[in-house]
Each structure stands twice: as C-alpha cells, then as structure tokens.
C-alpha cells in the first residue's frame, strides 16, 4: 500500500482514535493519544492488509523549546515485511507525570527502546516489566535527553596554554 492508502485506511477504521495524520516526504504518519495507543497498535499489527509485524524503533522527542503542546512525544516506527510498507506513530505525552502504555506485548523488540525512553526522558511505561534505567547507571539522577538537562563539559586538568591553571593544579599541595 502507498502511504496515502495506509493513512486513509487507518483513518477510516479508527476515526475516533486518530488525532491527526500527515505525509511528510511521502511517509505515512499518524498522531495518537496515549490512551488509544494499545488499541491502534493492535489494529496495525493484526489487520491483514496492514500487518505491521516489525517494530523497528521507539524513540522520544522533547519539544520544550517549541511552541507546542504537549511537551513530550514518543515515536514508533513500524514496518511490514510482507507488504513492504511503513508507518510512523507519534504519541503526544503530557508534561506532568508523563506516561505511555507499553506495546511490548505486541512486539518484543519494544522492550529495550521503551526502557531507554524511561531512562532518557523519564516517561513512565505502563505495563513494562522493567521500569528502570537501561543505559545510564542505576544511581544516576535526571533524564539526559530532556532539553532542560544541561550539556556539561568536563573540566580539563592540563592544557598546552601555560597560563592555564585548573582547580586541581591550583589546589595541589606544594612539593618540597
């Protein structure tokens, strides 16, 4: 199916669950609310003419700096190996207590990326067997990929600039 047909079909079958659709650069994109996600995902996977059996990735976006609501978004990239077509499902998530239901019962490949979504954006995954950090250390605080998480640099200890003295060098006890 072409992207237009996919979007039309999904819109016709699940009119109340789909918030909006788009076709950027010819890709099929649908916008879904978090509480409808599992219903839409099950339909996309089970419908014989769509049959999105392969979830290629789940990622998150933080739209803090943009003039838009809601703040977070989870993006699901789906592909059908039989029909060779793809769709992108975008789920807007509120800023307060962000959470989204899991789709790992449909695609096991969602387990790791969803855990990463929790780790990097602090979005709680309802029904996920492991709501804990995946990539960052367990004792880490903060969610690194949020836009309000500062990108810091490591302070250097030594430099080829002769006048440079780092804190470590300054606080070094005097040698004899």
């Amino acid at each position: 199916m072409t992207s237009e047909e996919i979007v039309e079909k999904v819109k016709a079958s699940l009119a109340d669950a789909i918030q909006d659709t788009a076709l950027p650069q010819g890709d099929a994109v649908i916008f879904v609310a978090p509480d409808c996600l599992q219903k839409v995902a099950a339909f996309l996977k089970d419908d014989p003419s769509l049959k999105f059996d392969y979830l290629s990735d789940v990622s998150g976006v933080d739209y803090l700096n943009e003039e838009r609501e809601p703040r977070f978004e989870a993006v699901y990239l789906l592909y059908s190996i039989d029909h060779q077509h793809s769709i992108r499902v975008r789920v807007g998530i509120e800023e307060d207590n962000p959470s989204v239901p899991t789709v790992s019962e449909l695609w096991k490949g969602a387990l790791y990326p969803e855990q990463e979504l929790f780790d990097m954006f602090g979005i709680f995954i309802e029904g996920h067997p492991k709501n804990e950090r995946l990539i960052m250390p367990k004792e880490w605080s903060g969610n690194p990929l949020r836009k309000d998480y500062p990108l810091t640099t490591e302070t250097v200890t030594f430099s080829h600039n002769r006048d440079f003295k780092s804190d470590l060098v300054k606080s070094k006890p005097p040698t004899r």
Binding site: D57, S59, E66, V75, L77, K108, L111, P113
Partner: peptide, 26 residues
C-alpha cells in the same frame, strides 16, 4: 536508520539512531 527532527536551525533538534545490534542484544 536515522530519525531526525529539525526546528529550522542549523543544529539537529533531535538525532536518533536506530542501531541494529541494540535490538539483537535485547
């Protein structure tokens, strides 16, 4: 795969890579 979000500036607003071995390791 690369998933990019652009806000119209010279820097990517979001640059997500879909690595093959991530899902295989899972």
């Amino acid at each position: 795969g690369f998933y990019l979000v652009s806000d119209g500036s010279g820097k990517p607003y979001k640059c997500r890579v879909r690595p093959p071995s991530f899902t295989l390791t899972a």
